[in-house]
Every structure is written in structure tokens, then in C-alpha cells.
């Protein structure tokens, strides 16, 4: 039997998926950049503070990753299987691509932000940038709904101007989590249909809250009252989040391992 040249198929899948999704990400970042420029224009004229680009893409990027994750299961899996790629190779490739994408996004926004700070420094208007983004709104009703909303809108955050490496790392964890949860939800819908899919949405909400709590406690950010008794350091948080990501990946693999391809 003729064997395919031994470039591992999954690394080909990873490369292809990374570039396709990065291309989408560039479109998304481009739109966010235009919005950001408008915000700068408004801020300069009204003397308000705004966030640097890195921060202003932060919230929307999570949603972007969630959506791309969902699309991934519906669009890419059938595509690859119909090109003779096994579900396993697709899974490995897509997982690697999702890590790559999660790294590429904050790296790109960091570079843009550095250039932005540099240019604005030339014009002597750096004071424009606020560093208060990470301070959370203390909602009166400290219920689960506000927790969910806060988790999604204001994910745990480190100011890049204080510790940029940690800031990027936390963003990577956030983006990867949202991508994988999207992929998880998409896979559940694909495999089992609407009802199980909805259950997985609920599970994903719980996982977002969990990730949020883990990182917030580790980073010493404001946490809801009932979590305030917990206290552990950042390494524990990171181990917790990585463990959660691993479990989510495992569940995605179980969902897609033998799934029938829709035609």
C-alpha cells in the first residue's frame, strides 16, 4: 500500500486551521481597530480616558473565540473527514490550532498597542490611557446572574502596563477557554442535537464561572462574597484552569470520536 509522505496529517490540519482562523481573526481585529480609532478620536476631543487597543479587544475577543469554536465543529469536521482525514487527526490539529490562535491574538494586539503607545507618546497624549479596566463593578445584587455577566464581560484581567507577560498569559487562557467551550457546545449539538446541546451550554456557563473564580482568586481580584473565603496563589489557579481545559478537550474528543458526519 502506498503510504502518504510522512508529514503527519494532524500537523497539516493544524497549520491549515490556524491560518484560516487567523485570517478571520484579522478581520475581527481590523473591525475592532476601526472602532478603537473612533474611540481615540472621541476621547481626545472630550478629554476622556480610554483603554489601549490590547484592552479594548479583550472582551469581544472572548465572544469571537466562542463563535469560532462553535463554527469549528460544524464546518471543519465534515470537511476533513470528507478529505480522508480521521476524526482523531482533525481533533489533534484543531486543538493545536486553537492554542495557536489563542496565542496569536494577544500577541498581535500587544504589538499594535506598543506601536499605539509609541505613536501617541510622540504626540504627548499618553495620559489618555486608563488602567482602571480591571476594577470590577460591585453589583448590588450579588447573584448568579451578575456573576455570569461579569465573567463574560469582565474576564479576569491583568493590566498589560504593569505585567505584560502575565497579562498576555491570562488572556491566552481566557481565549482558549472560550474557544474550547464553543467547540464543546458545537460538538454536543452536532452529535446529540438541541436538547443535549442546551445542557452543554449550561455546563459551559458553569465552567466559565469556574475559570473566572479560579483566576480571580489567584490574581487577587474582587470576587463575589461567597468566594471570598477561598484564598490561593496564581500557580494553583493556573493548574486549575489547565486541568479544566484538559477535561473539556477530553469531553470534546469523546463527543467527536465516532460521530457520524452529517451530509
Amino acid at each position: 500500500m502506498i503510504k502518504l509522505k510522512k508529514t503527519a496529517v494532524f500537523s497539516k490540519v493544524a497549520t491549515d486551521l490556524f491560518w484560516v482562523q487567523l485570517f478571520w481573526a484579522l478581520g475581527f481585529l481590523g473591525v475592532m481597530f476601526v472602532i478603537h480609532l473612533i474611540k481615540i478620536g472621541v476621547a481626545v476631543n472630550s478629554n476622556n480616558d480610554i483603554e489601549i487597543y490590547f484592552v479594548s479587544t479583550f472582551v469581544a475577543a472572548n465572544i469571537f473565540m466562542l463563535v469560532v469554536g462553535i463554527i469549528s465543529s460544524y464546518g471543519f469536521l465534515p470537511h476533513y473527514v470528507s478529505n480522508g482525514v480521521t476524526r482523531k487527526d482533525y481533533f489533534k490539529g484543531a486543538a493545536l490550532a486553537s492554542v495557536g490562535l489563542s496565542i496569536a491574538l494577544p500577541v498581535i494586539t500587544s504589538i499594535v498597542s506598543v506601536i499605539e503607545l509609541f505613536i501617541l507618546k510622540i504626540f504627548n497624549i499618553t495620559t489618555l490611557f486608563t488602567t482602571t479596566f480591571g476594577e470590577r463593578v460591585n453589583m448590588e445584587d450579588d447573584g448568579i446572574v451578575s456573576d455570569i455577566i461579569q465573567s463574560i464581560i469582565i474576564a479576569p484581567y491583568v493590566d498589560p502596563q504593569s505585567n505584560w507577560l502575565l497579562a498576555i498569559f491570562i488572556v491566552i487562557l481566557n481565549l482558549l477557554t472560550f474557544y474550547l467551550l464553543g467547540w464543546l457546545i458545537g460538538s454536543a449539538f452536532y452529535r446529540f442535537g438541541v436538547i443535549v446541546g442546551l445542557v452543554f451550554i449550561a455546563i459551559s456557563v458553569v465552567l466559565v464561572l469556574l475559570e473566572n473564580a479560579l483566576l480571580s482568586i489567584g490574581l487577587g481580584l474582587t470576587v463575589p462574597e461567597r468566594l471570598s473565603s477561598y484564598d490561593f496563589g496564581l500557580p494553583i489557579s493556573i493548574i486549575g484552569v489547565v486541568a479544566m481545559i484538559t477535561i473539556v478537550l477530553w469531553v470534546i474528543r469523546q463527543l467527536t470520536k465516532r460521530v457520524a458526519i452529517k451530509m
Binding site: 500500500m1 503510504k3 496529517v9 473527514v81 476524526r87 470520536k257 465516532r258 457520524a260
Partner: peptide, 30 residues
Amino acid sequence: SILASFREQTSGAIVIGGEAPFENAEIMQH
């Protein structure tokens, strides 16, 4: 779709080139 590994059979056997094709990269690529 079973021949092409798009889905698995409920029972019985399918063998392509001496091997079960489902999730078998050597067969599926062909």
C-alpha cells in the same frame, strides 16, 4: 457513508485492503 467512514455500522464487518476503515488513516486517505 459506511464505506467512506462517515459513520459506523451497527453490526457486521467491513474490511478495505484487509483493515477496518473507520478512523483508520491508512485506509481513509484512499
